[in-house]
Design a protein around this nucleic acid. Structure first.
Lengths: 202, 202, 202, 202
DNA sequence: TACTAAGCGAGACGGTACGTCCCGTCTTGTC
DNA sequence: GACAAGACGGGACGTACCGTCTCGCTTAGTA
């Protein structure tokens, strides 16, 4: 940004997308969002900050929501590695704690905005839905592997398990109560776990 | 609404709030929200529909969010009765199914908007927080009573139990996946239940 | 303008047009037009200069052209008094010289823009047409009175006479050759006059 | 045009101007102007229609106005032949009727735009001025020849005579009143003529 | 009974942002 | 080095709402 604001200004690099502009816009979008919040987030503000023309933004992102989601994707790119610690308890705990930890920073502020936007704009909703569907596919593997290992009963629906955890994290994110003790996390994990482990023989 | 649109227009009834205006505005707000969605919800649109002046709205509701929340409160007034069926399983099932069922109608659409607004506007967030705190107080009783009956272990945090269920419902509401089978509801309830019932002696 | 730029800012004076805004906008429009020319004349520039919102301008003037024409009308309000000097020659001379003189100032610059706009925008054209039609009605009286006095033949079409003079002035305005000697004016007047006075008996 | 729109696209013919592009651009410019009017006339629209790159247009025409004037020149190339019918009356009548007739077609629409553009852009004005100066030189010959034949008084300024006629035509063009009867044309011609023929001895 | 004070509808006000179109400049790869 | 293509920063377009204001009215409560 600082560069963007002081440097002589980017130009076209021919009939092809200018990555410098793209990056400047994403950075500006993130900065505007974090400084002014969702209600202060506008394409105009981003364009001003990025020293970019509005049409340049609309050329590559069809809507505010698309830009928002792109910011989220780019920023959290490395965040989510679905852990494989060898046992369910540790895997699920890492999954939930990872979610909560990630959202405590910048990513959380952005994702809240994405979820909020999705409640009013169909295209934002579609984008979020697609993202969530993909996430569900990834996270269900976590439980499936536990089932293969015999740690989790076969009649358990894998998605439901991770959904219970991620929903819990969503709830905390959207009500700004992410700051949660390890004991509480363990309590949640243990509760879920008790319901999905194989039943004792008796 | 139809009345509001055709009738000659209300006037002041003196130096006191006109309940007819208040009601017309709430009705118009609900109608606008349901017809046009959150993105089409504006004070101007409500004023137009209610045949009310904008200052009349701003006089009684400090912000869009306040109006929204008021609509939600007025509409769901009778909805939530915390059940007392004598055993935890039925109580929790009724609690979760009640939430999901309520939100499948008008209330859900409105509540989604409230949650969304809260992500961008501090006053909306405060209003939602206050509401949620109250809800948590009410719903924890449900678990506490079960603990008194010995159905639930004493070391279980009551709020955490209902939060897991209500978070699950939030997640479904915000991703438009409220249409859920009884089997899934049971799976969720059973999972949670397994984690909170007294442990077998062995 | 100077006032408008420094004063604390106008507000609404209720559900009625604010004449101060109207005046500020007209003044700003004239100033912008004279300083930046037609190509630099934009509603945005006028709004900025008048410290007015764009919607306020669009509320009262449907188009750039309407605003332009209004500026012209307001500014030249007192200019055109059709003379009645008792004889045709002096009347026509006063008519033509008045046109040329008026247009040598601000009014001319504005009217050129109005004519130019009219060549591209139907609504501007309509506005100009209406104005010209009214002008023709007024100016034909000049010749009709001369006909009543017997100074001009009855078979002469009154409009055609004044049109020849006003067209001449248009031509000079649009090619920036308004600076014309009295001899040339007299030559034009005498030429026209020779063609419309009663024919000698022989 | 049709060709331009369907053909696969011209390419460079090496380090030299491609006449096919030039012609395609002029044709496209004329078509755009006639179909969409001056307000719809843009370099982008012309480039789209001609399947040409914008830089190609800017390379050869410095401005919209230059392109416009070039279109006018190319199209009316053959139109104006100054008649020599042997007597002033017929010559002047042919001159005026020629002007009116020419402008009733495509040329008129284009010339209106040129005049309009000239009111806002100095370069367009310069181009129009140069063109008009040349026209005046040509048309004054018409009157000078009549003076040589003794049909017109020697003290008459030749330019003024043709200017009165051409101004009249300009006025009609710019107010879309070119559809004029022969009687009116004759009235104008006779009026001018009466003022310039030799005075009767008495 | 008259006066006052507040609520009412209406809608204009200065603004901000929207999403689109065009400007004139640029760079790329092809011919 | 000219060409088609098209991205770039920029600016104006005309519209929708924002939240504030003033108007003229109506009426309840006070004096």
């Amino acid at each position: 940004m600082t560069e963007a604001e002081t440097k002589p200004a980017r130009r076209s690099i021919g009939a092809t997308r200018n990555p410098a502009s793209q990056e400047a816009i994403l950075q500006a979008a993130e900065a505007v969002l974090l400084e002014n919040g969702l209600s202060g987030f506008s394409i105009e503000a981003v364009a001003r900050r990025a020293r970019a023309g509005k049409p340049t933004i609309y050329r590559w992102w069809p809507s505010q929501a698309a830009l928002l989601l792109d910011v989220y994707h780019c920023r959290k790119k490395v965040d989510f590695n679905f852990p494989d610690k060898g046992n369910v308890r540790d895997d699920l705990r890492a999954y939930l704690k990872g979610l909560l930890a990630t959202w405590q920073g910048t990513s959380g502020a952005i994702f809240r905005c994405v979820v909020a936007k999705a409640q009013g704009e169909p295209e934002a909703f579609a984008a979020l839905s697609a993202y969530m569907a993909e996430r569900r596919l990834q996270s269900r593997r976590l439980v499936e592997k536990a089932q293969e290992r015999g740690e989790v009963r076969a009649d358990v629906r894998p998605e439901l398990v991770t959904e219970m955890l991620s929903s819990f994290a969503w709830g905390r994110l959207l009500t700004e109560r992410l700051d949660i003790s390890d004991e509480e996390v363990d309590a949640v994990i243990d509760t879920v776990l008790a319901g999905i482990v194989p039943r004792p023989a008796g």
